[in-house]
Design a protein around this nucleic acid. Structure first.
Lengths: 197, 197, 197, 197
DNA sequence: TATGAATGAGATTTCATTCAT
DNA sequence: GATGAATGAAATCTCATTCAT
């Protein structure tokens, strides 16, 4: 508790630098300098630069999965659950904007086995999201004229894209953007039954 | 017609390799081998590896801008024009899927001045798109309760994301996906008038 | 004391090779081989080949300046001081003949800022020498019919030229040459009073 | 006669660039661009870059030798001849300052056989100068307490050094400097007879 | 004579990783 | 646990020279 652990400090510095300059343009030397540790210390906690990158992925995947699971576990009307999920993913992505930048940009810099590991866990995550969508479709809430993969891509593209345009210094707050994007998405996929009142 | 030019062949090989492995993981050696030329020949046409990357950006930016301008120039009802623009952007992005992968992933590998040049030309493009949106809003077609930057990001995120999930070998054709994503977007932003409030 | 430092060994090898073949004709590979170290080790101590060249200049400039300052600090009759300075410069230049070869031949191979730094420090050195000459002129010892820059060039040309003709294996010893050249210089600039009449 | 020959134009550009940047830092591309010709044309007249450098040496050596021979051929008192030779060498060196810069700095960039050729012709030139000095010594005009090589080095060092400090834009004219340096040299080597011994 | 695209060898430099201390 | 000097493989880029036209 005395001081922040070496591993945490290194990870923090790495995320920042990877987001700002890219993984390939960031040297291990830069990372350890920014973290205020030595190279030897870093290699004590991480086997390689690749290992360090994967740690970032691991943290993000674990975080997202646990949040999704938690919200679903809370239960409720499917439409409310889906809305809550969407809002939460966007807000969390904004909270971890640099991580997101790295996440979507540097996948191909991971070693092949680790790319597969990430892809596998992303699929688990997507599948759970898809199941939610399916529930809504079964309940007659969402349109079925568009293939599910397209619907899912339509939502996650918004999440992905946040790091390309959103800035905490900009006019919109995190919550506003989360609501707005969620609304656009849900309006797009909702069956306009409005008919019948 | 006798033989393909060195520059073209190199560009083609570069796009393919950059898309598959990333810019940083691709060596000039790999590129010239894939292109069937010598390193010296490549450096006769491109000043640097960075120059080669920029050539890809330049081609994409020029292409997208000219297509957008052409469609707008054709004129018509604003809703029809916007739809045509959206469909065309998506179709073109699918036609140039590897280029798109490189485009959105490798911006930070460009030299600073060239990053700015790309950003500048992207802004010109976005501004023209925004003007179209504005026309539709002025005409009472599209909602105004969501800031324009969010609306624009909502659309371009779909374009951006294509290279992360779409595959020509998949079940959906280029045109279908273009129609579906455009429909999702337009449905999301359209003012559901008639709804009697 | 156990072993010579990498930096020293590299510098020594570099001086030898630069003097024998020229800076441009000497590869980093040749230097590290001659020094018995690896390229990586060299780049741990020197940022670039240019840096290595500058280290040679730095050592020479520091040495010459400190010797000049020391002799002047010892004080004495101006004619004796000037003579001591001249003899010492020549002897030191003979002691560091390869360094001198590099010094006068490779200035233009340095980066522009470093060329300026060398020029600046050379000027400081020359100015101190000029002040000594001025004292002698004020004392009526040396002729004033020839501009000071010409007198100074006349002396340093001898120093400069040593590496073009002097060989330790030749018939003249270091001290003899130092005395002879100093005598030629001083005889040339001395006011032949004595002649009274 | 219509226009300046390619060879001349190339040589002129090469001298300028070699003097300004050094032989190694000047590319053949730069030379042909500055000369306004193509690479192919240059290689039609010069076998190699080395050949081009040697042409500069050849021109200088031929010029200097012919001037020395001519002055000696004119005959006269040995002291007058030596003085005339010294003044002429200095004036000519100032007329060809860039050539001189290249001459003294780039010898080691020539191929070994050509370095020997230059050294051989320099020796011929020096020997003729030495013979003149010897005549003066035999006539009791010049001191003999200093080895001839030292005396010769003492003079040619001044010539060599011109390109390091003399500027045509400076306060001293070519003729003044020639007179002054010659005077310093001759005063230095002259036997101060009359001095009662 | 002249062109300039192409060659190919070699140069400098970077950097993730190791290991004796 | 921690250090940082040293390694060595590989990367980008340069450039004198050639040669088909």
């Amino acid at each position: 508790m005395k001081d922040v652990s070496v591993a945490d400090e290194v990870t923090r510095a790495a995320v920042e630098l990877f987001a700002a300059q890219g993984y390939a343009n960031t040297s291990v030397q830069q990372i350890v300098e920014a973290a205020g540790v030595t190279k030897g210390a870093m290699y004590h906690y991480f086997e390689s630069k690749d290992d360090l990158l994967f740690a970032i992925y691991d943290r993000m995947l674990t975080l997202q999965q646990s949040r999704l699971d938690e919200i679903i576990a809370r239960g409720g009307e499917v439409d409310d659950v889906l809305r809550a999920v969407c809002v939460d993913v966007i807000e969390t992505s904004i909270d971890f904007l640099p991580e997101g930048t790295v996440f979507f940009r540097s996948l191909h810099m991971l070693s092949a086995p680790r790319q597969q590991e990430v892809t596998r866990r992303r699929r688990v995550y997507h599948d759970r999201f898809a199941a939610l969508l399916q529930q809504g479709q079964d309940a007659g809430l969402y349109r079925t004229d568009i293939p599910q993969p397209v619907l899912i891509a339509h939502f996650f593209s918004d999440v992905h894209y946040l790091s390309h345009w959103y800035s905490p210094e900009g006019p919109e707050t995190k919550s506003e953007v989360a609501e707005q994007l969620t609304d656009l998405f849900l309006t797009g996929i909702r069956l306009t039954n409005g008919s019948a009142t």
